[in-house]
Simulated assay, not measured.
Amino acid sequence: MTRLRPGIIVLLLLLTAGFHPSFARSEEPVSGLRFGMQEVGFSAGYLISVRLTSDHSTKQQGPALMPSWSMILTDPIGKSWYQGQILLGAEIVYVQFQEPVLTHGIGFTPKIKYLFSGYHSLRPYVEFAGGPFYTDLVGYVPEESARLNFILTAGVGLSWFVTPRMALNAGYRFHHISNAGTRYPNVGLNASLPYIGFAFYF
């Protein structure tokens, strides 16, 4: 009588017991977050000037700090790769401009975020925000003529859930500052903003 190898016996027992290895679940979406939960986060990045036209001459740059709060408005919606959840909240944006001179800016921006369901602990997202922004750049840069401005941001990122209720984030935003035509000139300032951060859910 032929003897079965120990490895084959173990494999047969696992299959009989209905066990499925973890790689067999690699396409199952993460579903730990629910409607009504809150997200409290903090991100930090570095503003890098983007000059889109010849009228953009300032090379503004500097660190940015962004504490935020959001609420999850939906359980997972959609199907396939675009399944995700909508978050709505607000963010404070502080920027220390280090070029051409040391100046500051602070703003408050409502924001909307779409957090894709992703796979396992990785969840990509897209986000948009905009709101009033006060800065003392006036008199130092030719692109701006008002202290009260507005910022618009659009970005993408990736959340790594190290626990079901905590995530580490890394992303990129395109950052625009202008006075919405309330004063002249209003060329505006554009920048790239790579950032990292973390978020808690409860």
Rank of each mutant, 00 (worst) to 15 (best):
I112W: 04
L137N: 06
G105N: 01
L88F: 08
E143H: 09
F133M: 08
Y114H: 08
K113S: 09
G105W: 02
I196W: 05
F174Y: 15
R147W: 04
L88T: 10
F133T: 03
Q98F: 06
Y140D: 12
A199R: 04
V187Y: 10
Q98N: 13
G131I: 03
F161C: 12
P164W: 10
E144M: 13
T163F: 09
V141L: 06
N149Y: 00
K113E: 07
Y140Q: 11
F128H: 01
A154G: 14
N169M: 13
V126H: 05
N149M: 03
L115H: 00
I177V: 10
V101K: 14
H104V: 07
V93H: 06
G157T: 01
K113M: 09
K111S: 07
Y114G: 06
H120Q: 15
P142S: 04
E143N: 07
G181A: 03
T153R: 10
I196L: 13
N190K: 07
Y195K: 02
F116K: 00
N179K: 03
V126A: 13
T135R: 01
P124M: 12
P142C: 06
H104P: 02
Y172V: 08
I196P: 00
P164D: 14
A154P: 02
H176E: 05
Y114F: 14
V95A: 03
I106D: 00
H120E: 15
L115A: 08
G188P: 04
V138W: 02
E127C: 07
G107E: 02
G155P: 05
G118Q: 08
R165G: 07
V101E: 11
Y140L: 10
H104S: 12
G155Y: 05
Y172P: 02
L158M: 13
E99S: 10
G131R: 07
P100T: 08
S159C: 13
R165T: 09
V141T: 10
K113C: 05
G107I: 01
H175T: 11
V101F: 09
P185V: 11
T109R: 05
F150K: 01
I92V: 13
R173E: 14
A129G: 14
R147K: 13
S145C: 12
P164K: 09
T153L: 09
P142H: 05
Y184Q: 12
E144K: 04
F198P: 01
T103E: 14
A170H: 08
Y184T: 12
F174N: 03
G197K: 01
R173M: 14
V187T: 15
A180F: 10
T182R: 15
V141N: 00
W160L: 12
Y184K: 15
T109K: 03
D136Y: 03
Y114M: 12
P132D: 01
V141E: 00
F133G: 02
L158T: 06
I92G: 10
D136R: 03
N190R: 04
G89V: 06
E127I: 13
T153F: 00
P164L: 07
K111W: 07
F128E: 04
L137T: 06
